[in-house]
């Protein structure tokens, strides 16, 4: 007999209330996590979206990419020796439109790669967030460091850097703007063992992100907020499941008195925990994803599958822990104790 299901059907109000609490707590965690991830993406999506690989910058730059300038011979040699490798540079700047309206952007250029869009000289490809701000294909922009004008040739997704939209430009335009032929960084994809290049320092994508001035401090704070929330939510989860089962000690004692196995009682507790948590999490995930779609673009929200699965697993583990903890109390409870408690309260 499925005792767990029968109890949930009969005492549905109690379980709906418990499920609602689990749902609200998990929804809050998913939303905050999505906003934290969104901020992280807003800060470094351009780098995060790169495939697995190694980033090189000049050792003398001391981990500040804006100061890195890779020797052109070294660049040519690395690009020649590694398929799919490319050189790239990123500099913060701004675009001026015909009405002298200013738009902060991160100018990015590369020597040609699948990850950075191809841009013709004089053209510019912008992150799609700027299209939502009203910029259209064919719009003209200029820059105080460049005599020529930029024409918007198109838009691309997920190109954000340092909380600014990325503007992809041709290497020649970049060279004219910043008066340098040298690129700041090299990217070599899927290098299992990063090879040493004289005068260059190698970084994994994650290591490189931590060299960005604001990134590590921001991520540390956001991660702390999210995991603090996860710990509090988890404790609430565990406490609610524990309290729910402890209140039923008398019932479990009677069931034990008539011979029901303790294992069957554990299965009952776990089934209820699994059903409540699964329904609450499915709803939370659905609503948080919906929130991600309707949230204004100024509120970056990013909740990828791996982060969702990670949080889901944490909630299940903690729920299981809380339910098992109460199960251990039930295991200790003697049938006689339960009967006497029932008699006293009768």
């Amino acid at each position: 007999m499925n005792l767990a299901w029968k109890e949930m059907k009969k005492s549905n109000t109690k379980f709906v209330i418990l499920g609602s609490i689990v749902f609200l707590i998990s929804l809050l965690t998913f939303i905050i996590s999505g906003l934290a991830n969104g901020l992280s993406q807003d800060n470094a999506a351009l780098i995060k979206n790169l495939p697995d690989g190694t980033i090189y910058m000049e050792t003398a730059a001391e981990e500040t990419h804006a100061l890195s300038a890779i020797d052109t011979d070294t660049e040519k040699q690395v690009l020649m020796e590694n398929d799919g490798a490319f050189a790239f540079s990123i500099q913060m700047g701004f675009l001026l439109n015909e009405q002298d309206g200013q738009q902060s952007v991160a100018f990015a250029t590369s020597t040609g790669s699948a990850e950075f869009p191809d841009v013709a000289k004089g053209d510019i490809i912008l992150d799609r967030s700027l299209e939502e701000d009203g910029i259209k294909q064919g719009d003209i922009f200029n820059n105080s460091q460049l005599e020529d004008e930029f024409t918007v040739a198109g838009f691309t997704d997920g190109a954000k850097y340092s909380h600014a939209a990325v503007a992809f430009i041709h290497p020649d335009d970049y060279a004219d703007m910043y008066r340098t032929e040298q690129m700041q960084m090299l990217f070599v994809p899927e290098t299992a063992q990063p090879r040493t290049v004289s005068g260059l320092q190698s970084f994994s994508t994650e290591e490189f992100l931590n060299t960005l001035p604001s990134y590590s401090a921001e991520q540390l704070s956001l991660s702390m907020i999210v995991w603090f929330l996860v710990v509090i939510s988890g404790m609430l989860f565990a406490i609610f499941f524990y309290m729910m089962n402890i209140q039923k000690l008398g019932l479990y004692g009677i069931l034990k008195a008539i011979g029901v196995k303790t294992g069957a009682l554990f299965r009952m507790i776990w089934t209820q925990m699994l059903v409540i948590t699964a329904i609450a999490l499915i709803l939370s995930i659905a609503i948080s994803q919906l929130f991600g779609r309707v949230a204004p673009s100024d509120m970056p929200f990013h909740l990828p599958v791996d982060a969702t699965l990670q949080l889901t697993a944490v909630f299940f583990i903690i729920g299981f822990f809380g339910a098992t903890l109460s199960g251990l109390q039930i295991r200790k409870a003697t049938p006689l104790q339960a009967i006497q408690q029932g008699e006293e309260s009768a």
Partner: peptide, 26 residues
Amino acid sequence: IRKIRAQSFGFVFQSPHLVPFLTAEE
């Protein structure tokens, strides 16, 4: 002892101690 309680013993207590979410039949 649990097996013997389940198979060979019956209990009637001062309070009925019925399972609140099961019908009489259940």
